[in-house]
């Protein structure tokens, strides 16, 4: 078994466009790391609790959350 080497020079950044999120929660249901959740402390202009990420350092960049989002409220970036 080899060891997985983390690349320190790359990390994933998830951008949540809170204004267009409708808080449907589908992104929270597909995240393999369980780091996407509805943020009950925030309310957007449309009155919804938007989704957000709790621990971005655990994100693997699979983009499952973005691919199931019906409102394209998520963008995934790889930052060097």
């Amino acid at each position: 078994m080899g060891t997985v080497t983390e690349r320190d020079d790359e990390m994933i950044h998830i951008v949540f466009f809170e204004d267009i999120c409708k808080g449907c929660g589908l992104c929270t249901s597909v995240c393999p790391e369980g780091i996407v959740s509805i943020n009950k402390d925030r309310i957007n202009a449309s009155g919804y609790n938007p989704a957000g990420v709790t621990d971005e350092t655990k994100c693997t960049g699979c983009a499952f959350c973005a691919r199931i989002c019906p409102d394209i409220a998520i963008r995934i970036e790889k930052v060097s």
């Binding site: 994933i12 950044h13 960049g61 983009a63 973005a66 691919r67 394209i72 998520i74 963008r75 995934i76 970036e77 790889k78 930052v79 060097s80």
Partner: peptide, 12 residues
């Protein structure tokens, strides 16, 4: 920076 996922161009 590279983009893994973003809004397609053919949508407004």
């Amino acid at each position: 920076m590279s983009i893994i996922f973003e809004r397609p161009r053919s949508l407004t």
